[in-house]
Design a protein around this nucleic acid. Structure first.
Lengths: 145, 145
DNA sequence: ATGCTTATTGCAAATCATTTGCATTTATTA
DNA sequence: TAATAAATGCAAATGATTTGCAATAAGCAT
């Protein structure tokens, strides 16, 4: 996903591109492979512009969520982390438990076997999520030292 | 999972079996196939004993979580739902988006293909979750009316 | 470029689920 | 039955998220 695409989608919705919003979008674009908490997003934005308010970040997160452009993962009961959602093609992720990096993988567990199993049980499948958690190679190296 | 097993595990940990705790455990046992919020668990307990306090429910949830006996699913940013965890054998779930029923399915997405894909990417896999969301047959019938 | 309309922002205050402190109660054991 | 330590209930604290509202500023029309 590129910045200009995001901006265009927002403009189509009559949303205005303020400095703060632009900074927020840039931050998401520049960290597309990382899950970030509200706090982390805010801090990154504030590196460029100290005036960005947490409330504004919350509101922009809400906006992108409502447009289905944001992936939200409940890291634990107390923490939600976000990243831009990629609709280019269906895929799943492997998530580094240490640094939060998300690597898309071209593998889908929805085999014919599984689909027929679900039909058998009378379920009408609507969606599915497969999340793999591990330690990325970078973090493995760091941990070895 | 049966009530007596739960009770025994708690006794082994020097936990005391109070009326409130017993009620909490019974509620989980009697609803093993449903995800329930704190509020729902509390209400169910209070049907039997009005004196059960929400704080007590929170503390007992924390206890079972710390013993890895409780499955917690973040339904949305504002809601966590719980159910007893079944360690009998490895499996995943299909969850009814309407009533919260969880049906265990004997299918695991960790194919050799996937495992080698992850090795290739340098990831050290620690855990994984596969959740399938759909509408159960009961809820389908209700929705048709 | 200028002014108008209305979305967006920042701040302070409100909210609300969850957690904590502490005195009281109660299960368990010797 | 008494001693002990765990568990409970209540009220208050916490802390992330949300909301109200006045001030600001983006984007459009002129």
């Amino acid at each position: 996903m590129e910045l200009k695409d995001l901006v265009e989608q927002l403009k189509n919705k009559k949303c205005r591109i303020t400095d703060q919003r632009m900074l927020f979008l840039e931050t998401l674009i520049n960290n597309q492979s990382s899950l970030m908490t509200v706090e982390e997003i805010t801090e990154l934005c504030q590196k460029t512009n100290k005036a960005v308010n947490t409330t504004t970040i919350y509101r922009n997160i809400e906006l992108l969520e409502s447009m289905d452009l944001l992936y939200a993962l409940n890291v634990d009961r107390h923490t939600v982390a976000y990243k831009l959602l990629c609709h280019d093609h269906h895929h799943h992720h492997i998530i580094c438990s240490n640094c939060g990096e998300m690597l898309p993988i071209d593998y889908c567990p929805l085999t014919p076997e599984l689909v027929s199993l679900l039909k058998e049980k009378g379920y009408d499948l609507k969606s599915h999520s497969l999340d793999l958690y591990g330690i990325c190679s970078k973090c493995q190296q760091i941990q070895e030292h």
